[in-house]
Amino acid sequence: MIGVFEPGSDSARVYRALVSHPGTSPAQLAELAGLAEPRVRRALAELGRVDMVTRSGETWDAQRPDVVATSVLRGFDAWRSTVRETEEELMSLFRFARTRDSRSLNVEVLDSPAETFAVYEQLQDAVRDQVRGIDRPPYYWDEAELARQEQRQLEQMAAGIAYRTIYQESKRDSPLRSASMMRTIASGEKARILREPPVKLTITDDQAAILALDPPPGAEGSLVVLLVHPSGFLDTLIRIFESLWRLAVPADVVDADQELSAGDREILSLMASGATDDAISRRLGMSRRTVVRRAARLLERLGASTRFQAGVQAAHRGWL
């Protein structure tokens, strides 16, 4: 279609001749356009397929140029939209493929589950302070490996290493993983629950991370696992973990009695709306001291450190 507006093309020359000389035969058009008649007939057939010319017996006429231009521009807009969508898809694949050569991010690609397990063991040996993790499906450890890793974690915690883990809320889909989680929590692991954690992640101290990435649509293979060394990228992963930790729900809250009294529900709703203790006291007709005490108990029950966080977690649990 765009050929109509490309000077010198057969379509443009034939169409221009028809604009100036309506009701013209192919032989006459060949003379007017300076083309051989077979080329004129091919151009007319092409233009006719997209309704830019009309035929009446042995003569032809041009569709209105403004109608043709609108049709061309509409097609170009659709083409441009397709190009943009394809660009986004290809760029996603481009970036994904080049994670294998992301030296600027100070990362290595771990090519197999066996290599991932081996690196995880090395990081466990080197940890001195804390391990932070985001645990979500899919799981690749069999029962024996899971038991071994659980025992290793229990030994590390007994030696004073702190563990904080964000689990996916669908933990019940894996009975073995759920049972292991409950045992590590009982032994001192700090655990929280998030409905849909974005990645699988383990951070040891502030020195290294193992990050598992789901491939984008159209990419071959399954997870890509990266070992991230000290870098701005690692710092970003640490900040992401801490942000998700603040928004996640403490694991003991998820399985606890979730009934609230009407008074606590009112206090929680007002807290989430940003009301001060004095405002809540006046609204509910209770002393400020009582409001402070009950608000503190609600924060503790939700495992929240701020009222905003308490509101997010309460809404997540269906308390508001």
Score class of each variant (00 low, 15 high):
residue 238 I to L: 01
residue 156 Q to G: 07
residue 256 A to V: 12
residue 177 R to S: 11
residue 23 G to N: 03
residue 216 P to L: 06
residue 40 V to F: 09
residue 254 V to L: 03
residue 269 S to H: 05
residue 317 R to M: 15
residue 80 R to K: 14
residue 228 V to E: 05
residue 304 A to S: 10
residue 152 R to H: 15
residue 206 D to M: 00
residue 133 G to M: 10
residue 257 D to W: 09
residue 54 T to L: 06
residue 271 M to C: 00
residue 51 D to G: 04
residue 126 A to K: 11
residue 116 T to S: 06
residue 26 P to G: 13
residue 268 L to V: 06
residue 96 F to V: 03
residue 198 P to C: 01
residue 232 G to Y: 06
residue 190 K to S: 14
residue 95 R to P: 01
residue 143 E to F: 07
residue 145 E to T: 12
residue 116 T to Q: 10
residue 148 R to N: 12
residue 80 R to W: 15
residue 145 E to D: 11
residue 68 V to C: 01
residue 205 D to K: 01
residue 1 M to H: 04
residue 108 E to S: 05
residue 188 G to W: 15
residue 274 G to W: 05
residue 143 E to C: 04
residue 142 D to P: 11
residue 270 L to M: 08
residue 47 L to E: 09
residue 215 P to F: 11
residue 107 V to D: 05
residue 225 V to G: 00
residue 24 T to R: 04
residue 16 R to M: 09
residue 250 P to D: 02
residue 7 P to H: 03
residue 275 A to Q: 06
residue 194 L to G: 09
residue 41 R to W: 12
residue 43 A to H: 07
residue 139 Y to T: 03
residue 129 D to G: 00
residue 305 S to R: 13
residue 305 S to Y: 13
residue 183 R to L: 12
residue 111 D to R: 14
residue 317 R to W: 15
residue 280 I to M: 00
residue 96 F to E: 05
residue 112 S to P: 04
residue 67 V to T: 05
residue 320 L to R: 14
residue 209 A to H: 07
residue 66 D to G: 08
residue 306 T to V: 03
residue 59 T to D: 00
residue 310 A to Q: 12
residue 294 R to F: 10
residue 99 T to S: 00
residue 154 L to D: 08
residue 217 P to R: 04
residue 152 R to S: 15
residue 16 R to Y: 03
residue 231 S to P: 05
residue 22 P to K: 02
residue 58 E to P: 10
residue 311 G to K: 12
residue 229 H to D: 02
residue 283 R to P: 14
residue 37 E to Y: 04
residue 209 A to K: 03
residue 315 A to V: 11
residue 246 R to L: 12
residue 70 T to L: 13
residue 159 A to F: 14
residue 298 L to F: 12
residue 82 T to Y: 08
residue 204 T to D: 09
residue 210 I to N: 02
residue 67 V to I: 07
residue 185 I to Y: 07
residue 222 S to E: 15
residue 303 G to R: 14
residue 161 I to K: 05
residue 94 F to Q: 04
residue 124 Q to I: 02
residue 171 K to H: 14
residue 236 T to P: 02
residue 14 V to F: 01
residue 230 P to T: 11
residue 30 A to L: 02
residue 92 S to N: 13
residue 161 I to S: 11
residue 204 T to Y: 09
residue 1 M to F: 00
residue 169 E to W: 14
residue 200 K to L: 00
residue 42 R to G: 06
residue 107 V to Q: 04
